[in-house]
Structures are given as structure tokens and as C-alpha cells.
Computed example of a mutant assay.
Amino acid sequence: MYVAVKGGERAIENAHAWLAEERRGDTSVAELSVGQIREQLALAVNRVMAEGSLYDPDLAALAIKQARGDLIEAIFLVRAYRTTLPRFGASLPVDTGKMACDRRISATFKDLPGGQILGPTFDYTHRLLDFKLAADGEVPEAATREAAVGDVPHVAEFLNHEGLIEEAVHDDTTPPDLTREPLEMPAERALRLQALTRADEGFTLGMAYSTQRGYARNHAFVGELRIGAVPVELDIPELGFSIEIGEVTLTECETVNQFTGSKSEPPQFTRGYGLVFGQTERKAISMALVDRALRWEELGEEDEGAPAQDAEFVLYHADNIQATGFLEHIKLPHYVDFQAELELVRRLREEAGASIVQEAAE
């Protein structure tokens, strides 16, 4: 047993060394720095921060480098590091109405107070490979890069003036913290939103796409999508007031969805909501669509059996770290389990063969 353990340790050490060599790659090529990843692979960094539940671009970039670009592995690293950090307080809720918007668009209203801001987006590119990037060509700076500052009203409030959309719920109770307490069912909306904001982007996108294809009859418009920086404030009891400790970049999406009404509510539009760290608009839109699908019961709608309406199915399978851990554990040694299965199959085959011979003899 001692020899087996030592042999296993040696193999693992060699695997670590080989991994480090593969991570570095060809040494004649300049090593990729954390700063380069942070600045030039910002969308990957944003995803790692969002699904890792930790807003720190430098740590997210380091995790991406360590994981060789495997974003789920990088998310795992960030979450593991997050558990070592002390918690010294809770910030006040951020006010996205005061967001300094780099991007602000609406698919429902053309003319918005403050204007639509296209911002940095792939929406209008031709999806053709740009070989200038392979030649390390310089990219011209944008003519205008000023973000919209000051109060920027949400588009849904325009509909709210006429009573055409449900009132936004303002609940001052402290929601449960999914990062410190396990997920339990039934989950209230605040807990569902926490789970969705750190859910796997691909899974959330698939669920959202299913609602658009008719699995939940959830036809939606993007009422507003905005990306920008918001200040973060911390209440200091000794001072008697709050102070700004920094700012974070967020992506917020609010969808406007059809609603035919119920016994207690008149026909009106309803809301779906998504809020994610960084510039992660695909995830924010997907989150808003799934959020709306999960609200079928509180809105008095019928359960159509759609996957996106099943809170237990969605929330228990959305976390890519849990999914990865359960999936990848099957590649680890299962020698004893397999030997038991092997002996069972052999015995069943022997019994089946004996039964066939007996039937033939009869």
C-alpha cells in the first residue's frame, strides 16, 4: 500500500509539471501576462467574475491564465479563492438608475431621454476574420467615448406611467445568501436571481432560447439593456452615513413580456430581470428571459411543463461548478465499484446461459 501511494504521488507531481509546461507553451513566444488578459480578453474576464461571484479583474485574469483559458476551471479557482476571504460588511443596494452608461439600448422605444448609446458591441460587425489583428495592427480609437452620466431613467418606467406594466416590487428584507447557504426549494425570486446571475452562461442561454421557441410561450422584448459603472457604498455605523468605496461595471437587462391577465390582475406587460458583473449582455438577456419563465406561478399562469418553468430543474442544473464536479468525478478511480458491477454482469450471464441450456434440454 505504501508503494502504491508513493507511486501515485509521483505521477501526480509529474502531471502538475507537465501541465505547467503545456500552460507555458512554446518558450520562443512571449509569455501572456495577467495585464494583457485583463485588458484584451475582458469579456472572458467578465464571465469568470460573474460566475465566480467575485468582482476582481486581476484575479479573474490570473485564474484564466492558470486554467489555460478553460473558463469553467477559472471560475472554479475564483470561487475557491473567494471562500478564503473575510467578510467585513455588506454594501448598500446599488442604484442602476445612476449608472454611467457605456451602452444603453432599447428594442421597444426609439427615442429615449438621454438617447440610445450603441457602445462597444459586436451587433453591427460582419463576423469576418480580421487578419489585421494577426499582424498586430493598431486599432483606431473611437471618435467619442464619453459615458452617459447622471440619472438615467429606466425604460419600463415610461410604461408604468400608464399602468401598462406591472409595478416593480421593492422589498427591503435581506435576501438569503446563496454563497453561504445551500439552495433550497421552493426558492423565492431573490434567491432564483442569485442562482441565475452565477449560472453557466451556456446553460442559461439554452433555457432562454427554449422559451423563445415556444417552451413557455414567453414572447419578450428587450425593454432596456444597459452597461456601465455604478458606485458601491458601504454604511459606516461609527460615522452615521455611508461612503463610496469604489465602483463596479454591471450589465442590466429588463424585458417586457406579454401577459393576458388573471383573476386578480388586468392585462398588462410583465417584467423579466437580469443583472450580471461586467459586460455580459448575452447572459443578462438570457437571465431575464428565464427569470420571467420561472414567474409563471406567481402570475397565475398555467404550467405548460416547459423546462424553463421548472425552478428545481433550472436552478439545480445551472451551476457549472457543481455540474463539472459531478461529471468529472467519474474519470477518477472507481476500481472497486466497477469490479462489483463486473462480477454482477458475469453472474447474470452465467445464470442466463444456464437457463437457456435448461430450456433447450426440456
Rank of each mutant, 00 (worst) to 15 (best):
F259K: 05
L183H: 05
Q66R: 07
E181Y: 13
L41P: 00
E298M: 12
A142I: 03
D303S: 04
L128C: 04
A15N: 08
I236S: 00
L85T: 06
G202D: 15
Y215I: 00
I105V: 13
A67K: 03
D136F: 11
F259Y: 15
P307E: 02
E362T: 11
K331H: 14
L294D: 07
F158D: 04
G35N: 13
G246H: 06
L348Y: 08
G89M: 10
D102P: 02
L348S: 02
T173G: 03
F76V: 05
I356Y: 15
Q258S: 14
Q66W: 01
A135Q: 04
E359Q: 09
A100E: 14
G223S: 12
Y335C: 02
E21W: 02
E298D: 10
H16N: 15
S91A: 13
F313S: 11
P266Q: 10
E301F: 05
V232L: 07
Q309S: 09
A17V: 08
R79I: 03
R145Y: 06
H170W: 00
V152L: 12
L164N: 01
A142G: 07
E188K: 02
A156G: 11
Y273L: 13
I227W: 09
L315K: 01
L299A: 04
L118P: 00
H154A: 15
L332I: 07
A216D: 02
G228L: 08
A288V: 05
G119N: 10
E362G: 14
V222T: 01
M207L: 15
R38N: 05
S210F: 07
T125E: 06
D303T: 09
E252T: 13
V45I: 06
F203D: 03
T260P: 00
V29Y: 09
L62N: 05
T251S: 15
D26M: 07
G97H: 11
P176Q: 02
T204H: 01
R213G: 08
A80T: 15
I245R: 02
G206S: 15
F122E: 13
R82L: 09
H329D: 14
P307L: 07
P93W: 03
L62E: 14
E157M: 05
S210W: 01
F269T: 06
E166P: 02
V5R: 05
V94A: 13
H16W: 10
T96C: 12
V48K: 04
T324K: 14
A168K: 06
G272K: 03
L92I: 04
P57A: 12
E254K: 12
A80Q: 13
L315R: 05
G89R: 09
V48F: 15
E254C: 14
P186F: 07
E188N: 01
R198D: 09
I285E: 08
M185C: 09
P153W: 03
A143G: 00
Q40I: 04
G52Y: 14
F241S: 04
D310S: 11
A61H: 07
L178E: 00
Y335E: 03
R38Y: 05
A220M: 12
M207S: 08
L299W: 14
V5C: 09
V149I: 11
G119V: 01
